[in-house]
Amino acid sequence: MRLGITSPIVTRLPGVAGEWEATAGIAELADIGAAADELGFEYLSCSEHVAVPAEIAAQRGGTYWDPLSTFGFLAGRTRSIRFLTQVLVLGYHHPLAIAKRYGTLDAISGGRVTLGVGVGSLREEFELLGVEFEGRGERADDALRALRASLSASEPEYAGTHYRFGGLIVEPCAMQERLPIWVGGRTQRSLRRAIDLGDGWVPFGLSRSWLREMLESVEVPDRFEIVLGAGPLDPEDADRTTVDLEKIHAAGATIVGVTIRASSADHYISQLRRLAELAGLEGRSP
């Protein structure tokens, strides 16, 4: 079973984040990342919000570390674990800005970036950034095509409905020949967007039965990732944790993104070790 980590500390959702995360910082996160890397977890995640209205933060949370800065630091403390933006809002950035920033991160990390992207749903944030909210799905589709043409190309060229560029040099670009793009969302359209334009789908807020029904309604390409969330998990409850993971896998997951219960950074690392044992992860040699 392949497991990724919904990183603690960097995103604090009400009712999910532990109290210890409020005072933890980059030192604790780096220790957690190094342990996850050693144990054989697939990825660490970091989400994106520039500014969340105070009245909405009570539901969505207000703490969102910048993924580029966070992963740039963690790249120096890890060797193999991947870095997943879960998610980067496409409408907030020009595709070439994403290609340059995350292409550089890919070069720094030795080819360990996975772009998790989304259309976005927070109208207030779009308005703050001066980005049109309506029509964002169509622009996101064009942005995905532009990204595929530019992420791993030093001299990218693209002519679409919203983005056009050529005759430019973007260096460094991603070192991966095909940097993976996973599309987030909870609709049939997001699944179709992921199949047509991406390499994986990261749904949220859907029941397992509905997930199975959606997946059975489409032809999923070979080596396409279905990344389903599990948790919060308490690996100290081995039986329940094992059952939860098996149910997520049965729902169609190729990778399970786990949220883990813990009372401190040290306890979190202990929970990681227990979870790795339960899932049969193969640790990486020093």
Rank of each mutant, 00 (worst) to 15 (best):
T78L: 06
R60Y: 09
P53R: 08
A57P: 13
S80D: 09
T63N: 12
V50F: 15
Y43N: 02
H49R: 13
E55V: 05
P67M: 00
S45I: 02
E55Q: 12
P67I: 00
C46G: 03
H49Y: 06
R60P: 07
S45H: 07
D66W: 03
L39W: 12
T63C: 08
G61Q: 03
G40S: 02
E55I: 03
L68P: 07
Q59A: 15
E42W: 06
P53D: 01
F71A: 00
R82G: 06
L68H: 08
P67L: 00
L39C: 09
L68E: 01
L39Y: 14
D66I: 04
F41E: 07
D66Y: 05
E48P: 14
F71W: 09
E42C: 01
I56W: 14
L44H: 00
S47Y: 11
F71S: 06
E42I: 03
F71E: 00
E42L: 06
G62R: 06
H49L: 01
A51S: 13
W65C: 06
R82H: 12
S47P: 13
F41V: 03
E55A: 13
I81R: 03
H49C: 00
W65M: 04
W65A: 01
G76C: 07
E55D: 15
F71Q: 12
W65I: 00
V52H: 09
R82L: 04
F71Y: 10
C46N: 09
S80Q: 15
E55L: 04
V52N: 09
R82Q: 13
G62V: 10
G61R: 02
A51E: 11
A57F: 07
Y64G: 06
E55K: 10
L74A: 01
F41C: 02
W65R: 09
E48F: 11
F73C: 02
D66V: 02
G72N: 09
A58V: 13
P67C: 01
Y64V: 09
A58Q: 15
G62F: 10
A51C: 13
S47N: 14
F73Q: 08
L39H: 10
R60I: 10
G76T: 05
Q59I: 13
E55W: 13
G76A: 08
Y64Q: 03
F41N: 02
T78R: 09
L74H: 05
A75N: 04
T70F: 11
E55T: 10
A75C: 14
F73S: 06
S69L: 11
C46Q: 11
G62M: 03
G62P: 07
H49P: 00
P53M: 08
A57Y: 08
F73M: 07
G72E: 14
L44E: 06
I81H: 05
S69H: 09
L44S: 02
I81E: 03
F71K: 11
Q59W: 13
G40W: 12
P53L: 02
I56L: 15
Q59C: 03
G62Y: 05
V50I: 13
Y43Q: 05
S47W: 15
E55F: 11
A58W: 12
L39I: 10
S47V: 12
L68D: 05
Q59F: 15
V50T: 10
R79S: 11
R82A: 04
